[in-house]
Amino acid sequence: MGLVLAVDIGGTNSRFAAFESGPGHKLVMKETVWLSSVEARSFDHLMEMLAASDFPYSPSDFDVTVIAVAGPVIGGVYCNVTNVDWDVDFRGGYKKYGFNAAVLINDFAAQAYACRTPAVEGCRIIHDVEISPIGTVGVIGAGTGLGHCALVPVPVSELGYVPVPSEGGHISFPCQTADELDFCEFVMDKRKISYCCGDEVLTGRGLNMLHLYLTGEDLEPKMVAEKMKQGGKTLEWYSRFTARCCRNYAITVCATGGLYIAGGIVAKNPFVIEQSVFMEEFLDSSSMGDLLKQIPVFLNDNQESGLYGAALRGVLHI
């Protein structure tokens, strides 16, 4: 038995959970608390916010703390967190926070680990084909940022898989038509950026940009999502763009072990992937159509799955 503190720091929320671990990587969530990443001025301030919350544990109570952060993790000890104005820096050690042991991982590595926990037991099936037991698992999702990670089979590892994080949300967006290229030029001009990437298209701010381009309405992302419930061009484009990025990543990692769509936007607005255009676009490949037909697709709408994934990584450390 061991006690794990799992932390999932995103651009909007920072989630904390205490887990008990048991034989066979069993996880039991005990207590959770959600704090605002936006209100935190630094990681130190976030830990002060945790201490002031009603979370009934202190960091020293845990055998290991695993912190999943949005952004590239350097050397396992540093991350300049994407979409907030602070970093997590353990280069000088982590003892000052009271941790007995600490592990820093990418937030979508945690989402990938979560695919081997009860967090995905209630996943919605989008493309119902057989899962390959030896296939790579792909995870992709958009919220404040666009995350990717693959879980690759490695039989000699303790879990049987290892996560391969990615910053694929920052590569050039896959435009295919003149109108889409015009949209990307629009985003580049509005955002004053050198190229258009998935982080600027599929995220919350991307919803704002897409709707503004298509309709001239400058609305908050939540309002855009409400409007999309009624259908229309913004929904059609967003659904197609989501499917295209899912298709590209599924092909990139040969995700015959399943492609899991996570992240806040689609989880909260599942109608995005209920559109016929979604599966039409996902399966549309003249060269890899047969592969795509063999890739199961799931929607993971469990908002605490990142905590389960971080906890599993902690169990592997104990």
Rank of each mutant, 00 (worst) to 15 (best):
G306D: 00
L50E: 05
F173E: 03
A102P: 04
V154G: 07
L307H: 06
S172W: 11
G160S: 08
K222N: 13
G93K: 08
G2Q: 07
A225D: 05
E130V: 12
D179I: 13
K233F: 08
H211F: 09
L27R: 02
A101V: 09
F19T: 00
I67W: 00
D290G: 07
V77P: 04
D85N: 15
V88W: 07
L50C: 01
F186R: 06
T242D: 12
S58A: 15
Y249S: 09
T82H: 13
K227F: 10
H127Q: 11
G98H: 04
V297A: 03
V297T: 00
V162N: 11
F271D: 09
E185N: 14
G135H: 01
A102V: 07
G309R: 01
A225L: 12
E39R: 13
S37E: 03
D128V: 04
G76R: 01
T136H: 06
Y213M: 01
S37P: 07
A267T: 03
Y94W: 14
D89P: 08
L181C: 14
Y308C: 00
G122W: 02
V187N: 11
A68Y: 00
D182W: 08
D179R: 13
V88C: 04
G93W: 06
D290T: 12
G22C: 10
D218Q: 14
L259D: 02
A142N: 09
S286W: 08
G98W: 06
L259N: 09
K96S: 09
M47R: 00
S194V: 15
G135R: 04
M1F: 10
L146C: 07
R91N: 12
I125C: 00
I295N: 07
S305F: 06
S276N: 14
A311F: 04
V156I: 15
I251E: 08
E121G: 14
T215L: 03
G258I: 02
L212D: 11
M1L: 11
S14A: 15
R247V: 05
Q230D: 14
L104D: 04
P59H: 07
G143C: 09
A52Q: 13
L212M: 12
A112Q: 02
